[in-house]
């Protein structure tokens, strides 16, 4: 049974630039992402929104594989600042998993 935590999104949100909650899950970001990984970026932020921290941790490689190229946010109809959201997620993992700040 996956554990959910309502606090995950709040813990990652360290500024108003973290606006993954504006996502309406249309999937355009995933379709245009040069990496072609199913999880990037929509599904990843769905895990964050519902607080599936274990799922986020299972996908650490994918999170650091994001190019931050911004093709997703350029084409996002909800104007989510996706690269900045990925950066915040990395910051969270660096501190929590890698003891790096």
């Amino acid at each position: 049974m996956p554990k959910v935590s309502s606090k995950l999104a709040a813990a990652i949100k360290c500024s108003d630039e973290f606006n993954a909650d504006a996502c309406m899950h249309c999937g355009i970001c995933t379709a245009v992402c040069p990496m072609g990984y199913e999880i990037l970026p929509r599904k990843l932020f769905r895990y964050v929104q519902v607080g599936l921290e274990d799922k986020v941790k299972e996908n650490i490689s994918n999170i650091y594989s994001c190019l931050l190229c911004g093709m997703c946010s350029e084409n996002c109809p909800a104007e989510v600042n996706i690269p900045e959201n990925v950066r915040f997620l990395r910051k969270y993992l660096n501190e929590k998993e890698f003891n790096l700040s």
Binding site: P34, M35, Y64, S65, L67, L68
Partner: peptide
């Protein structure tokens, strides 16, 4: 504004993926 990435940002962590892009 719709340019495609060169893959360079991944060189230090994921060289094979960087070269694919």
């Amino acid at each position: 504004k719709n340019t495609h990435c060169c893959g360079g940002p991944l060189e230090s962590l994921f060289p094979t993926e960087s070269h694919r892009i």
